[in-house]
Design a protein around this nucleic acid. Sequence first.
DNA 1: AAACTGTCTATTGTAGATAAAATAACAACG
DNA 2: CGTTGTTATTTTATCTACAATAGACAGTTT
Lengths: 296, 296
Amino acid sequence: MAKQNTVFKDAFNRCLTLVAEKGELPSELELGTTLGVSRTTVRAILERLKALEIIAWDKRSKAMLRTPQPDDFFPVEETSSLSDIIERSFMRRILAGGAEPGMQINELELARDIGTGTTSVREFLIRFSRFGLIEKRPNSHWVLKGFTREFALELTEIREMFELRSAAGFAALPEDHPAWRDLDDMDALHRDMLANIDTRYRDFSELDERFHLLVHRSSSNRFIIDFYDIITIVFHYHYQWNKANDRERNARAVEEHLDYIAALKTRDLAKVDRACRRHLRSARETLLQSIQQPEA
Amino acid sequence: MAKQNTVFKDAFNRCLTLVAEKGELPSELELGTTLGVSRTTVRAILERLKALEIIAWDKRSKAMLRTPQPDDFFPVEETSSLSDIIERSFMRRILAGGAEPGMQINELELARDIGTGTTSVREFLIRFSRFGLIEKRPNSHWVLKGFTREFALELTEIREMFELRSAAGFAALPEDHPAWRDLDDMDALHRDMLANIDTRYRDFSELDERFHLLVHRSSSNRFIIDFYDIITIVFHYHYQWNKANDRERNARAVEEHLDYIAALKTRDLAKVDRACRRHLRSARETLLQSIQQPEA
DNA sequence: AAACTGTCTATTGTAGATAAAATAACAACG
DNA sequence: CGTTGTTATTTTATCTACAATAGACAGTTT
């Protein structure tokens, strides 16, 4: 069926909330930039909004006629891109399902399982291979290297090198660098979360990602920033299947972040180094503990 | 035309030299392992050898009938895999041809240019994107980030972190680790090359790669080892288009390697660190000098 | 019975086709 | 002048098809 129109559907849904908020819509061009799609897609969205009698569309005026109803939205399942679907499906298989290291991965079987063509699966695997969890045997299958203790150790080794360097780089940023403002915001967000940790602890994963990314960005090194993708995806999925003690774990991590932020603000390299190491050590512990040991 | 039979052709050529050397061929299975192909391909090769009356093939006996002639070989151009062709072609465009950073990369155009389907080009670009030289705009084109000074600086920054750590790791390997033997071999190869530097300096690039890979392997960290792919490809192509002063440059590098090897053998971390830094510094200089500065 | 071969099946690599989406052009409008 | 209507073209994302290749099993040879 060639391309799915998920871009359209997703943008349409976002446009519905937009129209509900504002009561009208801006120019086609502007709408395109806010939704991140081309004018072609914008016009398709407007057509549909008009057909559903949600807006009166006449040239420049796009006024809301009625408030969008839940029925007007496309179902969420239809809005995620194929690569996202494949990613989720694949990660479930290898992280949640007891996939043994050394297992063969079969493009065709995966594709049939997920219900897509092989091309997309193949492209996903190629993209995914940079995470070091799978490896290709040319002209043959892929091999799952597995989410093992070694993987976690190798991953954290690099993470620690990079983060220590980035943290030091951050502390050396000029006073007027915008990152300092972002750090203040982070500080506030963390305090906020800590104050309501019992209800908010589930949101930590996202905050964690944003905070570390902020630190890494200061390195201005594309390889360091790109590497953080690996950390992100590993932690993201890992948190999902492994929720033992997460309230305490996250509370502790928030506190460590706050120490780390405070240390950055002093711009004292020794302090930064100490706070950063402390946090990284406990992050590593957490990750290692959660990896199921292969029985001896 | 679906798949090209380059695997077959390449293996066939290698088999020709094999049969010329030995006068006969081993079992299908064994031949498969030495050539690195499946039995299916082995049998196809044997069919052809028989058809060309180069061997008499009857079940287990595969004796040579006549010495293979140059004509029997497939032309080399037909033996390289499509991805290699795409890689070379692409690298020529972006490194040799004056490709400006920010330039758009068009899958279709590239495919037409190279004379292949879009699928292969696309997969190449995805694989290549991990080198940080290009970036995808989803649903739209790729953007060439360019082989710029920043790229080189970011690359060498990581390289230096990794290599210093690997070198320290190497020095700490146990006495009986096989890497020490490999290092002795490297030492000999370097001395060899230095003795005949005037005729051999062109082979340095390959030796360089092997030496650094040996060092990096001691880290046993897949991310460090994988990252070295980026270094390899950058230097590989860079050496090709940029041969100014290469004799002196390479001679100097060989000497630095020898110092570095000697330092490793002492297992003295301070010495290793010093020799490693010295070499990395001059490698960085070389790379930076060769990057054409964008005119101000 | 171990090693090998003959035969068959399943999977990968690649091309080609098609719908979705992007991009472009330009006259007409307010 | 920024916007829209219109129309056309190009490119991407994805599917399907098929030859090359890998791999499995059963039968054969030593």
